[in-house]
Design a protein around this nucleic acid. Structure first.
Lengths: 377, 377
DNA sequence: GTTGGCACTCGATTCTACCGAGTGCCAACC
DNA sequence: GGTTGGCACTCGGTAGAATCGAGTGCCAAC
């Protein structure tokens, strides 16, 4: 058979000896069947599938090869085969088109984005619900980081005799706040003066680079300004800013039947920081899918993560993700994640009136070509 | 023994024929044992327990009575007994003291409340983590409703040509926001004027009763004020305001071994509104514990909910709750919930500098007497 | 009223037999 | 050469029978 007799470069141990068409078809059949039934797939079933026009015996001998090369495993002798992570990876990279949503789902998405309103957090929260609803998997949505958003307004509001609240409004509509303690009784006028000073010095800058604020003459005001300024830089500290919205965690309990797996995956989802860096990681590697142990967390070894970026006018504005078992429905999940990610980006852009940043409002073109991760040959 | 021969008022069908001391002791032994082992408890085990100084045979005959009266059930003939919801209820109401936290836990709580800082939401979120950590059950924390908090500041911040953000700061440190759309290009000066007008008209009032705002002469400004004012009343609409923080949902997966139970309970926790009204309901009925079907949600039939109020200067400021299996460790859960609820209230009070509202800052006395729900006779 | 004794129940566990989906191998075929 | 049908073999899953033992209900004796 073809086997593409290259001189066995072997950058990866046994790995990328490309599969010939028939092997690919068989792998595809196994993956598809297994995703549907969660049962090991035998040569007989594969032989029946359209596209594989060979006998069960031939399928068997090919499956032995596929097993040697690490695409399939047998749970035990004389059982059917199950895809490995590598098998899923090949399937996702080479064998599946992103897929399209059904009309009902498409309509759900449209209706959702037509109706959704309210603040960013609420929108993200609900988006996570939508995604989970579309796919029956647990969904995660992380919003834009605010580090680079320009400051629109800074204000100090008195709450108590020595307590004030620093309220910062950013260009993307986010509001950050931090309570600060002031030395002694601080009259409202002083706060007003400090607010004005902060506003003058900071407006238009981003949280990440708050530079210096000019002094007024008044020592008391300057003190307040200093405290507020310190609190401000605290606001941009990492981890504090990013919110993660998890939708439909209960779906995990249907996706996995081992209660221990459910527990450990839920445990991961509880750690927002981990989730954020997980999504970011996957996107940074230019992928849309992370399967099994590809990401480094063992509790997620039996999970796959489908990620799509959210961007507004070409700028990174967060990500959406779907978390399910490795035997998840990749085409559907990819389609859902990308559509929702895209629409969410547009929606956020709309909400900001297209005047969000220095970019001219030219909507970035949709780029369906890059969807399935590295798409080969 | 006592049986307290009251004339059998029978407001409940068979129910409150009080248990004599021996029956109570047996029930207690069964509940305690079952909580520990999750196995049906036989007469032999009960007879061995200190406090029950009778033979297994006697225990058996008493258990028959207890079963008739609905405190115990047998999963099948010739198995030990399991407490019913009614059994747990009696246990909670009459047989258990609130319990105290171990020194290690006590220290965790202290350290937590010494260290915790940042904004309300963050504090509540972390509190839910603490509670879950202390008890190994899932925890819920709902913050104060903002309806009655006085408005400290109202501000309109321009975000785009026709988009502005209404930012409201409340006396309790909460910041609410809502984006509003304005007719045509709206210069910053107009927004400033409208802000001032809103501020004048609304400061000191609560979100619930925003009354009327006086007109300026300027029609454009009045229009903006009107839009903002409408958005404001939208803010106080029910359901929108209350945030629920769920801590340690993964604990549910260890508390229940049936994956379907986990799924349905997680499903309930996803519905914030339900959770809020659940906690509120229980507190309104003057209880600290709701067991099994006492609350109306079937998915929670195998759960118990332990609730403690959070109050600041005697005012309702939310609640904390623990959700576990009906065979949860009630004394520990009650202790943890009440301590954390109390400390949280104090902490919020501190953060507001004791000047939160019209109440003079007299800390409300601790009232440990009311802890275990209706504690009778 | 309490207790020890005793026959009985019934879920859980273990063992055995058996079924059948699926495999690996091989000889025959193209 | 690759492909195919045939065949013996493997082994997890299921069903039934036997066994075990914790726990019960009942009763006679204390």
């Amino acid at each position: 058979m073809p086997k593409t007799e290259e001189p066995t470069i072997d950058h990866e141990p046994i790995a990328q000896r490309a599969l010939d068409d028939r092997q690919a078809a068989i792998l595809e059949a196994v993956v598809t069947e297994y995703i549907g039934t969660a049962q090991p797939v035998g040569s007989g079933h594969v032989a029946k599938v359209a596209g594989v026009n060979v006998s069960a015996a031939t399928v068997r001998s090919e499956m032995v090869d596929l097993e040697h090369e690490g695409y399939l495993v047998q749970p035990h002798t004389s059982a059917g085969r199950i895809p490995t992570d590598k098998g899923y990876r090949f399937f996702v990279d080479h064998l599946t088109e992103p897929g399209v949503l059904g009309p009902a789902q498409r309509q759900k998405v449209s209706r959702f984005f037509d109706q959704v309103h309210g603040e960013m957090e609420q929108m993200l929260e609900r988006t996570s619900g939508l995604l989970s609803d579309l796919t029956s998997y647990a969904a995660v949505v992380v919003g834009p980081t605010h580090e680079s958003a320009a400051i629109r307004s800074v204000q100090l509001v008195g709450l108590g005799p020595r307590l004030a609240l620093l309220v910062v409004v950013l260009a993307d509509g986010a509001v950050e706040k931090r309570s600060i303690e002031l030395g002694d009784d601080t009259p409202d006028e002083l706060l007003a003066a400090a607010s004005t000073q902060l506003q003058l010095g900071l407006q238009g800058r981003s949280l990440a680079e708050t530079g210096v604020v000019a002094k007024t003459g008044d020592a008391a005001v300057d003190r307040a300004v200093g405290v507020a300024h310190a609190a401000l830089s605290d606001l941009s500290s990492p981890g504090e800013a990013e919110h993660v919205f998890v939708g439909g965690p209960s779906r995990l309990a249907v996706a996995f039947d081992a209660v221990e797996t459910v527990r450990s995956v839920l445990g991961i989802l509880e750690q927002q920081m981990v989730v954020v860096s997980l999504l970011r990681d996957v996107l940074d590697r230019g992928l849309s899918v992370s399967i099994g142990v590809e990401h480094g967390y063992e509790p997620l070894a039996s999970c796959a993560l489908v990620v799509a970026p959210v961007s507004v006018d070409g700028h990174d504005a967060g990500a959406v993700g779907l978390l399910g078992p490795t035997r998840m429905n990749y085409p559907q999940a990819l389609a859902a994640a990308h559509v929702v990610g895209e629409r969410l980006g547009e929606r956020i852009g709309d909400a900001l009136g297209g005047s969000g940043s220095e970019d001219r409002g030219a909507k970035r073109p949709r780029t369906p070509g890059t969807k399935g991760g590295r798409r080969g040959r």
